[in-house]
């Protein structure tokens, strides 16, 4: 006879069966993992587009060592390049500027220089600019530069990077919304399952309540059961998400690096793990305990609210 099976009459294995809830939590954890991965990928692209090569503005100054034009509003500079650099350093939207050295410039222009066959060709000075995040260069900047160094040219790529960064921001917001929706649905599922369990065992709950069981004892028993089921479901969801995220990361690798997707040994688990960003791996590790904690907390609140109907 199963004498030790139900010590307090709550019979939680009957009230909260072990099949339904973990399956749903696993599905929710799987979706949350995908959404988190999408959010992280969008964040990575945003970072690349904001801080990468695409965000650089280049300023070309022909004949850099010639004398600069006179300008009554600025301090006279000895050369055109010095005048341009003075204007740029006085512009608040410029976060950093870097004049390419001789070697950098020749490396950059090597294809064209080799075609002309004249290594002594006079080269312009090139300055790379990075703007302060969220700020655009002032519309009057070009006019100021032209006033000090006529013929100066500016190539402005940050318009595209800003647009792409905005797109990445939208994708991150969508991912966050998806995580919120999945979390809300999971909480509702846990609440519904808990309430069904409470109704199934209401006779036993009323009895042990009348025998002196505290609210914290009863809610703790339910919460422990649900927390463990949610933990298991979260673990299953994370494990199921791992190979899919590995494949997606492998497919998306060309967007993060140059060239084709790297070769991968599909039978090596470490190769799978290495394919995923560390932040995503940590999120997958954190997903089961977070699911368990959310299940535990939701159940505690649901049971305590339900017990309020008892005296």
């Amino acid at each position: 006879m199963a004498r030790q099976r139900y010590h307090d009459g709550l019979a939680l294995r009957q009230a909260l069966p072990g099949q339904f809830l973990p399956f749903l939590v696993a599905a929710m954890a799987f979706l949350a993992a995908l959404a988190l991965a999408g959010g992280l990928a969008a964040h990575g692209l945003s970072q690349r587009w904001t801080h990468g090569a695409g965000a650089v503005t280049t300023v070309q100054v022909p004949r850099p060592d010639d004398a600069a034009s006179a300008d009554s509003t600025a301090t006279p500079a000895s050369s055109r390049i010095a005048a341009v650099q003075a204007v740029l350093s006085a512009t608040p939207a410029v976060a950093a500027s870097h004049r390419l050295g001789e070697d950098e410039l020749r490396a950059l222009l090597a294809p064209w220089i080799e075609q002309t066959g004249d290594p002594a060709l006079p080269l312009p000075a090139v300055i790379e600019l990075r703007t302060v995040a969220g700020q655009a260069l002032p519309a009057t900047l070009m006019a100021s530069l032209q006033a000090r160094a006529p013929g100066v040219m500016m190539e402005h790529d940050s318009v595209w990077s800003d647009r792409l960064a905005a797109l990445a921001g939208s994708l991150q917001a969508c991912a966050l919304l998806a995580v919120l929706v999945v979390t809300t649905v999971a909480v509702c599922v846990v609440m519904a399952a808990t309430r069904a369990g409470l109704l199934t065992r209401r006779q036993a709950i009323a009895l042990i309540h009348s025998l002196g069981a505290t609210d914290s004892y009863i809610s703790g028993r339910f919460a422990t059961r649900v927390g463990l089921l949610a933990l298991g479901g979260g673990l299953a969801g994370s494990v199921l998400a791992l190979p899919m995220l590995g494949v997606l990361s492998w497919l998306a690798a060309p967007f993060g690096t140059t060239g084709d997707a790297p070769a991968m040994d599909w039978r090596d688990p470490q190769a799978w793990a290495a394919m995923l960003p560390h932040a995503l791996l940590w999120m997958l590790v954190a997903l089961p305990p977070v699911a368990g904690l959310a299940g535990w907390t939701t159940t505690q609140l649901t049971v305590r609210a339900w017990l309020r109907r008892l005296p």
Binding site: M1, Y6, G9, A11, L207, L211, Y217
Partner: peptide, 17 residues
């Protein structure tokens, strides 16, 4: 409680303690 045997029904208050 109909799904608990006599022993467990009678033992219930002591188990809660």
């Amino acid at each position: 409680l109909p799904d608990m045997n006599v022993f467990d029904n009678v033992a219930l208050p002591l188990r809660l303690q």
